[in-house]
């Protein structure tokens, strides 16, 4: 089929993406592209549908309608089905009818090269910092249950460990290597979560509010940190963030959502002065 591939050169492309929960349209016909090596920030007031959009990309939810492409390859596609056919309030209801439904689980998405972090930190609580990173290497294994149990994969195991050690060093976490992940200070836990995501060797990194709960000092460090890893690992970054100083400083482009709809997209300076964005954030105060 002609549109099974979409060679626009974008690493990630969302196309007419709609997510409807019952009668609530959380994300409404959103389309956006993230170019290679770019940092795209998704912003918007609370409840705008940012995290829902993220969860569709990572396979947590299957969208109600729309498609997602990764490096030109279609990885997610759905059309309203069953009860949703009648309930559907979004646009483009007929666009994907009769096409293959593609709804991979989150692990398959990660295996494609899309890693993520979580808004509320989700580390493996009973494991050490090192083990947290080592676990992420599991998906890159070539060994099977038998060879792993009988330690016939010693070479691979050694490589996993060595790569994890190296990542710890790059992430400046080696001094807390053997501490329990949850005993780290908040900022370090964020770093560890990013490090763990990087251990899966992604090309696209999704950060869900990486600076949530951080003080200005920590936020500034994080800004530098994100910039540094983008260069070092050749990453494309797609992130949700509320801290405007972080967003404005680091983003190449910004995409703004309000009530599930895209209302603006552009360079930080353009978005900052866009009247629709100001209205969304100030609650339409000018109209009254």
């Amino acid at each position: 089929m002609s549109n099974e591939r979409n060679d626009s050169g974008a690493v990630l492309k969302l196309e007419n993406l709609t997510m409807q929960f019952g009668g609530v349209v959380a994300v409404d016909n959103v389309s956006l592209e993230v170019g290679k090596g770019e940092i795209l920030s998704l912003i918007g007031p609370n409840g705008a549908g940012k995290t829902t959009a993220f969860n569709m990309v990572t396979g947590v939810y299957a969208p109600t309608n729309g498609a997602i492409y990764y490096k030109g390859e279609k990885i997610v596609q759905n059309t309203p089905q069953g009860k949703m056919k009648k309930l559907y309030q979004g646009e483009n209801a007929d666009l994907y009818v009769g096409k293959r439904v593609i709804a991979p689980t989150p692990d398959k998405i990660t295996k494609l090269g899309i890693a993520r972090t979580f808004q509320n930190i989700r580390l493996f609580k009973s494991q050490t910092v090192f083990e947290n990173i080592l676990i992420a290497k599991h998906m890159l294994r070539t060994s099977n249950l038998f060879t792993a149990t009988f330690h016939l994969n010693a070479k691979e195991e050694a490589q996993m460990r060595q790569e994890s050690e190296e990542l710890l060093r790059i992430m400046e976490l080696e001094d807390v290597r053997d501490e329990l992940a949850t005993s780290l200070p908040y900022g370090k836990q964020r770093h560890l979560e990013i490090a763990r995501a990087l251990a899966t060797k992604p090309e696209l990194l999704l950060l869900d509010e990486p600076a949530a709960g951080m003080n200005p000092q920590e936020t500034m460090e994080l800004t530098q940190f994100i910039g540094r890893i983008r260069g070092e690992f050749g990453l494309t970054i797609f992130m949700i963030e509320h801290h405007m100083d972080l967003v404005m400083e680091i983003s190449d482009r910004i995409h703004v959502l309000d009530f599930g709809k895209s209302i603006a997209e552009g360079k930080p300076d353009e978005v900052r002065n866009d009247p629709r964005v100001i209205e969304a954030y100030l609650g339409g105060a000018q109209d009254e």
């Binding site: 692990d107 979580f118 493996f124 080592l134 676990i135 290497k137 060994s143 792993a148």
Partner: peptide
């Protein structure tokens, strides 16, 4: 014990600690 100490054992413990994070780390839950 050998299984628990292998990479599969680590994946099992990851599922125990946090299913959602384990899945996001590319571990096939099912």
């Amino acid at each position: 014990v050998m299984l628990i100490n292998s990479t599969y054992g680590r994946a099992f413990k990851a599922i125990r600690d946090d299913e959602i994070a384990a899945e996001a780390m590319g571990i096939n839950l099912a």
